[in-house]
Computed example of a mutant assay.
Amino acid sequence: MLLGMGPDGHVASLFPGHPLVDDDQQWVTFIKDSPKPPPERITFTFPVINSSANIALVVAGAGKADALHIALGNGQSSDLLPVQMVSPEGETTWFLDKRAASKL
């Protein structure tokens, strides 16, 4: 599966602090109050994301450096970011550009 990470550490349309992050019953669901446009979306949930054999996770841009720093265990956050909940059956391979990786 190919995923990207947002500047707040979200993947798919699973945003930090949103109840959908904890949905373990549905494989695909909808969100009506997305914190970034568009407000209405459909998304995979973690049961389907984490059933993937392997995941390629793409992170690009300086605006994602802080979340990436937290996600890879070097930064501080009181809550788990959604990207930290990605756990496929196989491997996760991270693809970073220099600006996203600038705080590692």
Results as ranks from 00 to 15, higher is better:
L57H: 05
F95E: 04
P16W: 06
N50Q: 10
T43K: 05
D66K: 15
G9L: 03
A56I: 11
D8A: 08
V48L: 14
W27S: 05
Q25A: 15
D22I: 00
S52Q: 01
S77T: 10
S13F: 06
H10R: 10
T45S: 04
G17V: 08
L81V: 14
D97P: 00
S77W: 02
G73Q: 10
P35T: 02
L3M: 08
L104W: 11
V86S: 03
I42M: 15
G6E: 06
D97S: 00
W27A: 12
P82D: 04
L81T: 12
P19Q: 01
A101V: 02
T43Q: 10
A53F: 03
D97Q: 03
S52E: 03
P47H: 05
I42Y: 15
L104I: 14
V59C: 13
G73A: 06
P16F: 11
H69S: 09
A53P: 02
P35A: 04
S102I: 00
H69P: 14
V83P: 04
V48P: 02
D79V: 03
V59A: 08
P88L: 11
I49N: 08
D66R: 15
A53T: 15
V28E: 01
M1R: 05
A67Q: 11
L72N: 12
T92H: 03
I49K: 03
K98T: 09
K64C: 12
P38D: 01
F95V: 15
E89S: 11
A53H: 13
V59P: 08
T29W: 01
Q76G: 10
P16N: 09
A67S: 15
M85C: 13
K36H: 03
P82V: 06
L81E: 10
S77K: 04
S87W: 00
H18P: 01
I70H: 04
P38S: 01
F15Y: 12
T43H: 13
P7W: 01
H10K: 11
P19H: 07
Q25D: 15
F15H: 03
W27C: 09
M85W: 05
I70S: 05
T43A: 02
D24Q: 09
A56M: 04
F15G: 08
T92V: 14
P16Q: 07
N54V: 07
D97K: 05
L81Y: 10
D33H: 13
T93K: 05
E91H: 12
K36G: 09
S13G: 03
A101E: 10
T29V: 13
Q26M: 05
S51L: 08
F15M: 02
S52F: 03
I42K: 07
I55L: 12
A67P: 14
K64H: 13
Q26P: 02
K32T: 13
G61P: 14
M85Q: 14
L81F: 12
T93N: 03
S13Q: 00
N50A: 06
A56K: 14
V86Q: 05
L81H: 07
